[in-house]
Design a protein around this nucleic acid. Structure first.
Lengths: 228, 228
DNA sequence: CTCAAACGGTAACCTTTGTTACATAAATAT
DNA sequence: ATATTTATGTAACAAAGGTTACCGTTTGAG
């Protein structure tokens, strides 16, 4: 999702490309950068702003699969797939700058330098891990479990029981792949059960233990736990 | 899923490896070849038999993501992921022979030959396409839509309205990621509506048009269609 | 051929999530 | 500040799918 250390993104042959003005294109907030179903011929790379990848269905429902912040390559795997039709829609969540690198240029880089090659392979491998994790989440986790997992993770990163949601409820619902009122309902239930204290985007975890139990599927629908 | 033409699998450097006896290991039907959650260090390749990849959850529910028939590499992407923990369990569906190739050997091959490199990248890219498609299927398609899609596809391949299911109901339910009785119920409903004629594993599509409508989500729960 | 094990259909019931509609609150532009 | 849009909570209801339990059928080993 975010830009982690990667041998491909750091290799000189690639970084030098990111400085070529001619390769960069700007998109305004809300613009669609690449439509689901269209062929994907050149690697797009987010160099400024925030970009998301969503699966849309004909009825207009959608699932946000990923958000990309600089410097992140978009769909490095699909570029080389037998069917190189993009399975997601790429949207600018803010004003963004996108770098474009042809498939052939990528191949040339990969062939030249083993570190680059390993780096690129780990980029595509990480996508597979991410998608597999999404499937696990979608099929095996209830909405409450998704909330629990998400909040516990945020809280751990921040080292505090109080977190501020970086997204709107609607954005979050798309990220979880659920309906917005359903997310609202489950959040309210957790608040009713005094597990969470919710004030707009500010959420305090009141009973971390309970939240962990929920995440692990140790509760049914009732919350008969102690404090903690 | 099946072994399609691929530049990596066909390149000589790789095919010569498949002849080295010492690299091959046998597994009996039902054996687990690699556990979900364990690190994946060498590329495994199915050279004989049938192998499946499933996501398991702690409660024992499972989703079959893929089946591999010879010659198919298993998880070529994860091999190079930052977190190279396998997100799926690899199971022998029959007696199988598995070839093992070290990560380093793969890198060497890819560096030597552009065709191999492109081939390997398309293998991993195709996995991403497959997983994205699974997500779409899981989130946006009802059980009836999955059945419709599956049968129409089988029927198209065979060029006949009569198909024979290659799997048991249980296997199919896992493939669809649904409960077995749920799949049974929906199959029965389609039979009740005279859209399908079902006799064990032999299914005849009686109303292809209706099935297409279902697939496209043009029906609610009632089937008020014409013939065809 | 026989028998046990695996497979499959079904019904009643439960749980989760989605849908729709509406009122309120918050954010943003003018 | 005020207006307008966007975001959010909520409730009543619907729908889809899961669970469990049971029994009949098919299959395949011996």
């Amino acid at each position: 999702m975010n830009a982690a250390k990667n041998k491909f993104l750091e290799c000189k042959i690639f970084t030098s490309l990111t400085e070529e003005r001619s390769r960069i294109r700007k998109y305004g907030k809300g613009t669609i950068i690449h439509f689901q179903g269209e062929e994907y011929h050149s690697l797009l790379v987010v160099v400024e702003g925030l970009v998301s990848a969503e699966i849309h269905d004909p009825q207009g429902k959608k699932i946000k699969l990923e958000t990309f912040s600089p410097v992140s390559p978009i769909a490095p795997g699909i570029l080389f797939a037998t069917d190189n039709t993009l399975p997601v829609t790429i949207t600018a969540e803010s004003d963004v700058k996108i770098l474009s690198v042809s498939k052939q240029d990528i191949l040339t880089i990969l062939q030249k330098d083993t570190a680059c090659l390993e780096g690129y392979l780990s980029l595509t491998g990480d996508k597979i891990v991410l998608l597999a994790e999404k499937i696990r989440l979608f099929k095996f986790n209830s909405i409450q479990q998704k909330i629990a997992g998400y909040l516990l993770n945020l809280s751990k990163k921040k080292g505090s029981n109080h977190v501020r949601l970086p997204y709107t409820r609607e954005f979050l619902a798309d990220l979880f792949g659920v309906a917005r009122p359903s997310l609202s309902r489950e959040l309210s239930r957790l608040a009713d059960a005094k597990i969470l204290d919710i004030k707009n985007k500010d959420i305090t975890i009141l009973k971390k233990r309970a939240l962990n139990y929920i995440l692990e599927g140790k509760f049914g629908t009732l919350y008969d736990y102690d404090n903690g």
